[in-house]
Amino acid sequence: MSGRSWKVYLSGEIHSDWRERIAAGIAEAGLPVELTAPVTVHADSDDCGVAIFGDEPDKFWHDRKGAQLNAIRTSTLISEADVVVVRFGEQYKQWNAAFDAGYAAALGKPMVTLHPTEHDHALKEVDAAASAVARAPEQVVQALAYVIRGQLPQQAARDAAAE
């Protein structure tokens, strides 16, 4: 599938380095992938609406302005994505990630969920809608290498050694 660039949307928790690990793995593997994501600076995401459209005395409307603005970015990038990766982390409840997973599923987008085994039961319906379930960012990179190039991890290591 040479010449084709894949768009991969990275949804989910913003408190760990999982996105950076996927980006580094994609770069190392030389995969033709463009990564997109929501705004990952928590304060910017929360306050974008009031920063642009003006203050709100009521926290509900403050949050609503930001959520509606963020929805433009999220829905557009998920719609354009070839693959959606949704990360559910250990520390926080990720309602946005669950919404993104449902949106991707409704659009028929191939989806990879990324979470620890402790979340298996809670995410059973989300995982059932996913094409794959990964436990580590490196597995996401390996899955993309297989989907894009038909290359298993052992083949990638042999190819790199031969170069």
Rank of each mutant, 00 (worst) to 15 (best):
D63S: 15
A29N: 08
D46V: 09
E80Y: 06
V141Y: 08
D44R: 15
I26R: 02
Q142W: 08
G89Q: 05
L69R: 12
V147C: 11
A130E: 02
P110N: 08
S79H: 03
F88L: 01
A29K: 04
V85C: 03
Y9G: 00
Q142A: 15
G66I: 05
A136Y: 15
V50T: 14
A43W: 07
S79C: 13
V33Q: 05
L35S: 06
I26D: 03
V85T: 02
Q151N: 05
F60T: 02
V85N: 00
D120A: 10
V41G: 13
L152V: 13
A128C: 07
E163R: 14
K59L: 10
E118H: 05
G150E: 13
I148N: 05
K109A: 13
D82K: 02
D127W: 01
Y146R: 05
A156Q: 07
S2H: 06
D44F: 14
D159A: 03
I148V: 13
I14A: 07
V112M: 05
D44T: 07
S16V: 13
A136T: 15
E20S: 15
Y103S: 13
K124D: 13
A23H: 06
A67I: 15
A97M: 10
A132K: 01
E80P: 09
V85D: 01
D82S: 09
D100I: 03
L144T: 04
I26F: 08
R135E: 07
A29D: 10
P38T: 02
C48Y: 06
G102P: 03
T40W: 14
V86I: 15
D159Q: 09
D82C: 13
Q154A: 09
L77M: 05
A157N: 14
A67Y: 08
S16Y: 03
D159R: 04
A27H: 02
E20M: 13
G102R: 01
D17M: 15
R158C: 01
D82R: 02
G54N: 04
G12M: 04
E90I: 00
